[in-house]
Design a protein around this nucleic acid. Sequence first.
DNA 1: CTGAAAGCGCTTACAG
DNA 2: CTGAAAGCGCTTACAG
Lengths: 364, 364
Amino acid sequence: MPPSTPAPRRGRVTIADIARRAGVTPAAVSLAVNGRPGVSDATRERILGIAKELDWEPSPAARALAGAPVLTIGMVLARPADVLGSEAFFGAFGAGLQEVLSARDYALQMKIVDSPEAEVETYRRWFAQRRVDGVVMVDLRVDDPRVPALEALGEPALVVGGPGHHGSLPAVYVDDALAVRLVVEHLASLGHRRVARVAGTASFLHTAQRDAAFEAVGAELGVGTVLQDAGYGAEGAARATADLLATEDAPSAIVFDSDEMALAGAHVVLESGRAIPEDVAVVTIEDSPLARSHRPPITAIGRSAVEYGRLAASRLLEVVAARGDRSSGTFESRVIEPELLVRASTDPSAPKSPMDGALRSSVS
Amino acid sequence: MPPSTPAPRRGRVTIADIARRAGVTPAAVSLAVNGRPGVSDATRERILGIAKELDWEPSPAARALAGAPVLTIGMVLARPADVLGSEAFFGAFGAGLQEVLSARDYALQMKIVDSPEAEVETYRRWFAQRRVDGVVMVDLRVDDPRVPALEALGEPALVVGGPGHHGSLPAVYVDDALAVRLVVEHLASLGHRRVARVAGTASFLHTAQRDAAFEAVGAELGVGTVLQDAGYGAEGAARATADLLATEDAPSAIVFDSDEMALAGAHVVLESGRAIPEDVAVVTIEDSPLARSHRPPITAIGRSAVEYGRLAASRLLEVVAARGDRSSGTFESRVIEPELLVRASTDPSAPKSPMDGALRSSVS
DNA sequence: CTGAAAGCGCTTACAG
DNA sequence: CTGAAAGCGCTTACAG
């Protein structure tokens, strides 16, 4: 085999091939395939036909080098691996992101790092290398240092979290204050007079906002409130729950920040010999299949993480598209309305088990 | 603002800049930064210093266009979004992948699709566009159509699953037959004479292999076995468990294919008034924080999904590096040894709750 | 061991 | 509305 043959990059079809076949210049092909004016409709049709026939795939590298978008969005997570694995939120959120991005031919690039500094450095490098057209930043914290860092980069970035604390960056978020209000109102209407909240990572903005709303709505409705920090994770939640139950003036309802925490807490309640919801009602602010399939099913706030991901993706693509558009000014944010899903863990009249029907029919 | 200015791509430092400063040609810079022979050590040092000083970031697009690797690995998942969210495996596996890839400056690109055909089409496009240097394929099935499709592409691809059914593609997998053997031997040693297995998605290769090993080891040890297909997911597992308990000759131990399934099954057991492990022992073949924090903690096979992901990444990078190396022939596979983690859901002498100590100390 | 050139595949001004 | 050219930033043969 003569190694001198220039190895014609086996099989790659380029716009030059299409141009040749169509009897036009590569530039005309470029205009045609990108749906830009400059070629007649007839020519465009012909070029598109040939491209399809030749099975042409555009080269993202060439496009990027010539200044076009690279069609990639980045997301970096500064969380330990096992947290990512055990919390339902990220899988569903990522799935929603993917769905919208894929439909627009965008890829999602992900990276896990171990500090906010490494996260910011990743953003810097990604943009410097032109690896991404934009990024989505999650786990917003109070006075988050990543916000000014992203503002300084001046590249398309979307914050997941709010309201507030996202500076001049566009954001999407769930109205956590409203979520907490729905929960507390629900519990108050059931007659609870003393309610506890077992809270996740204290530095997250939504944790602080939930804390504040919890106190406020409790005071407003005359419901006694008690707050327990637990950090995310089953162990902290179990410990916090045990502590609460050991109190003299133990609460008759406990609200957890995540599905994983609620499951762990519910175990502790049941193990102590108390009944759910008769002795202690249980609520999770993060719904999941596990919350649904628990016995009894756990009342939850349905944030629909998938929908949340979809919204984030479409919002970020808008920002990317508007890039450089100085006239657009500060981007407005978008809010998701939370919804309360009442289940048997708070309301005895709700079905105790979603599986009853299924069981019966499978016995036949 | 005169729009005629050629807008010198604000701030981008290129190898031309470095070459100018160093008094060499761009080609020399390329050789130097890529650690290739062709420049003297002194020159190389000088060039590297200048590159660092100028904060130079190589352009992946330019590199890719010139034929170099794009430093990206792809993974596509053909699973519904909610399954991804509720199973611990993917988060941890993905984290392990990331860790190794990031250390080698590789990015991970992900996509969720809804069919094996769409998955194969994604591989084809990714390689056609040179978006990735290699892919990792998960959820191997018996006679999986994706295997011949990837073989035909002839691009670097790693199969997660086996042994067998991965054709000529390199693979990494957990020894599922051994995992099942460890579990059944453990249960037999505790005196169980009738054991059930609640199995996940039947078409997955590892499900079939676990089924076969379950029957075989049961027969070998004189333990009666009963198999229940449930599909993945809490609902199917709950139903299967209820069915098993309703049997005249009910098993004294139940082995589940995933943590989510085991949790749902354990609820059904407890709800029926039976004690774990006194009346029914429970095991999961997929460990997770939820299995650990359950009351009682659930005996599990520790596959260490994070480690699994790390292995997959390093194996795939080897394959990518060896690409075109015709001499290497068929790639050998790599196996992970499963490990049995005995907890209170099978062994009454194991601590009933990992939190007892923590609770006690926090009460002080 | 070093230097100058060609080329990767595309897009974007810029002339006709 | 169409055509020919330059350029994006890098790597790889190919001469000296």
